[in-house]
């Protein structure tokens, strides 16, 4: 079972910026445990572009698809047998990243 694990940051109350070494160590443990499928930190939402080609021609617009105080700062994909395993790891991830975590199963 795969889960998308999103790291949520808050523009008005951002998490600390010195978490990289701790995140790397945590990733090593995820890999050793067989949970790690993918991970990546994301550039600022200012760098996002929304593409909409449902109409006559593609429209490109600057910025994220939704402006909000809270935004996606990074993602993991984990492989885990069930939600309890994921919630335990996510609780650690929240500490390690100093940010909120959203867990969402893939279909």
């Amino acid at each position: 079972m795969r889960y998308l694990v999103s790291v949520i940051d808050d523009k008005s109350n951002p998490g600390s910026t010195d978490r990289r070494p701790a995140i790397s160590a945590f990733n090593e443990r995820l890999i050793a445990g067989g949970y790690w499928v993918f991970s990546g930190g994301l550039a600022d939402t200012d760098a996002a572009t929304v593409v909409d080609n449902r109409g006559e021609q593609a429209v490109f617009s600057d910025g994220p698809f939704v402006e909000s105080k809270e935004y996606l700062a990074g993602v993991w994909v984990w492989e885990a047998p069930d939600l309890d395993v994921v919630l335990k790891l996510a609780a650690e991830a929240s500490k390690v990243c100093d940010r909120k975590i959203e867990v969402r199963p893939f279909l």
Binding site: M1, D82, R104
Partner: peptide, 9 residues
């Protein structure tokens, strides 16, 4: 969908 397990915590 989220696979909440059926077991003792």
């Amino acid at each position: 969908a989220a696979r909440i397990p059926y077991r003792m915590p």
